[in-house]
Structures are given as structure tokens and as C-alpha cells.
């Protein structure tokens, strides 16, 4: 199995492979942030910090303990989630701008701490040995992507997910429904961090080198842009947004330093023409069902209803 996959991956141009993996990691991170910001409505400007914690934890677990990669990733996720829960408990009592600034501050603290710890090799960064797995890295990354999509979809449709949406909708009303708002916010924060931590672990082992400065404010904004571009709260949106924004720097490479301009312009246009994001307010399953002819378009439903009522109205007179 492993050999076959190795061979298959070997046939793909390494440059495209790299882009593919970047997209995969982008999707994982965006899906994680989507749980926090999209589903629960808590604006976080420090998602890269959790990626950073995940990357360094995972790297150290490999370097110092030589832990098998699969266990390493899961443990990394849990450690990152624990850190998120710990930091989330005090700061998630804040809302809106205040929370955003707090997460921003937290991310900077994480960066500075990693830049000064001996164990993370200070500003030199860590070289991470390649992961010891029989399955090639790109396949692992995309396996995790699929797993994350499945998990997050499941959460969206669960009782837990419904509660998170209620918290996003109106915290006071949610509390009045018997939802422990703080607890749910911390749980969603920890879940988002878990996913980010796993993403960070994959990143560390795929890149082979990590530096605390790679996970700065710009990285957080990058991830947030993916979620916003795709549409807050939409899983399909996050996947599309992450794909576009992870691939864009590569395709815009010929524009060298001007590519950030295009990037910015894209987001500005987005906010004007589709402020809810590409997939905001669009039900993907609804679209698919409609394409398959399983679900009539709203317009036809309305027309049917109108013709029915007018018919029954005629019958009365």
C-alpha cells in the first residue's frame, strides 16, 4: 500500500505537489478557524499562534522523543487544544473587537516566547526531520483534510453545532435557551486550535524547517482571509477560499512583489460584491440536490404556490 502510494506520488511534479500540500494545510487551518469565527462568531486574529504551537510541539515530539508520526499528530492536537482552552477561559468572556485584540496579543506573545526559548532554538528556528511514515506526506496531508472536512461537517449538523450557531446569533438569547455560552465558546476555541495544531504539525514535517516568525500576524490574517473569502460559517467556502488563497501566490509569482496588490484588490472586490463570501448564504448540499433535480428551485415553489392560491381563490368567488 505504502509503496504503491509512494510510486504514485513520485509521478507528480514535485512543484505541483508542494502547491497541493500547501493548499491542503491551508484548508485544514481555514476549517479550524471557521469553527471559531464562522460557526461561533468569535473573531480570532491569532489563529497562526495555534499553528505555531502545533508546529513546534510536533517538531519537538519528533526530535526529542522520536514519537511515531500518527500519535505525534494527535497528541499535538490535544496539547494545542489544552493551551487554547487555558487561554480561552479568561479571554472568551470578551466580545468583538476586544476579543480580536486579545487574540492578536496572545499570538504575539507566543511568537516572542518561541523566539527566546532555547528548546525552540530561538530565532534560528528548528530543522525538523522528515516524518517516518510509509505513506507519503502529501497523501497524509490530504487524508487529514478529508478527515477534518468530515468532522467539521458532522459538527455543523450536530446539537453542539446548533448551539454554537445560537451563540453566534445572540449570546443572551442562547443563554436564555439554557446554553452555557462561555463553555461552548471555549470548546469551539479548543476545537479550532486542535485542528490548527494538527495543521501546524503537518506543516512542520512537510517543510522540514520552522521559524517562529513564519507564524506572525500576517499568517493569521492569511487564514482569516481564506475563511472570509469563502464565506463565514460555510465549510465549502473555507475549502474554496483556502484553495484560492494558498494557490494564488504561486500563480501570481510572475508579478513578484506586486502580487500582494492583487491579493488585496481581490478582497476589496469581494467585500463589495459578495460581502458574505463566495459561499456565504449558499447551501452547497442544496445546490447539489438542485443540480440533480431532487430539490425544486425556490422560484418554482413560489410560482406553484401562487398559482394554487389563485386557483383556490377563483373557486371561492
Amino acid at each position: 500500500m505504502g509503496d504503491f502510494l509512494q510510486q504514485m506520488v513520485g509521478h507528480i511534479n514535485p512543484y505541483y505537489l508542494q502547491i497541493l500540500v500547501n493548499i491542503g494545510i491551508g484548508i485544514i487551518l481555514a476549517l479550524g478557524l471557521n469553527v471559531v469565527t464562522g460557526l461561533t462568531g468569535q473573531l480570532s486574529l491569532g489563529h497562526a499562534a495555534f499553528m505555531s504551537i502545533g508546529a513546534f510541539t510536533s517538531a519537538l515530539l519528533t526530535i526529542k522523543l522520536g514519537m511515531p508520526f500518527s500519535i505525534n499528530l494527535i497528541l499535538t492536537g490535544f496539547i494545542t487544544a489544552a493551551v487554547a482552552a487555558l487561554i480561552g477561559l479568561p479571554i472568551l468572556r470578551l466580545t468583538g473587537d476586544y476579543l480580536a485584540i486579545c487574540t492578536l496579543g496572545f499570538a504575539e506573545i507566543v511568537k516572542v516566547v518561541f523566539l527566546n526559548l532555547d528548546i525552540t532554538n530561538k530565532a534560528l528556528g528548528l530543522s525538523v526531520p522528515a516524518a517516518v511514515t510509509s505513506i507519503p506526506m502529501p497523501v497524509v496531508v490530504w487524508g487529514v483534510v478529508l478527515l477534518t472536512i468530515i468532522c467539521v461537517t458532522f459538527i455543523h449538523n450536530s446539537r453542539f453545532g446548533r448551539a454554537l450557531m445560537a451563540v453566534r446569533g445572540d449570546e443572551i438569547a442562547a443563554e436564555a435557551m439554557g446554553i452555557n455560552v462561555t463553555l461552548y465558546k471555549v470548546q469551539s476555541f479548543a476545537l479550532g486550535a486542535f485542528i490548527a495544531g494538527v495543521g501546524g504539525g503537518l506543516y512542520a514535517h512537510f517543510m522540514g524547517y520552522i521559524n517562529p516568525s513564519d507564524f506572525g500576524f500576517l499568517k493569521s490574517v492569511d487564514i482569516l482571509s481564506m475563511v472570509v473569502l469563502g464565506g463565514l460559517g460555510s465549510i465549502t467556502g473555507s475549502v474554496i477560499g483556502a484553495t484560492i488563497l494558498s494557490a494564488a501566490p504561486e500563480f501570481l509569482r510572475f508579478m513578484a512583489s506586486y502580487r500582494m496588490l492583487v491579493y488585496g484588490g481581490l478582497l476589496v472586490c469581494m467585500m463589495i460584491f459578495r460581502p458574505n463570501g463566495l459561499m456565504g448564504n449558499v447551501s452547497f448540499t442544496g445546490l447539489v440536490l438542485r443540480a440533480l433535480g431532487r430539490k425544486p428551485h425556490l422560484k418554482t415553489v413560489m410560482e406553484q404556490k401562487i398559482s394554487e392560491t389563485s386557483r383556490s381563490g377563483n373557486g371561492d368567488t
Partner: peptide
């Protein structure tokens, strides 16, 4: 002010 969940 009712506070229904607007997007549900």
C-alpha cells in the same frame, strides 16, 4: 426586543 436567532 425578542432576540430571535435571525439566521435560523
Amino acid at each position: 426586543g425578542r432576540r430571535v436567532f435571525a439566521n435560523m
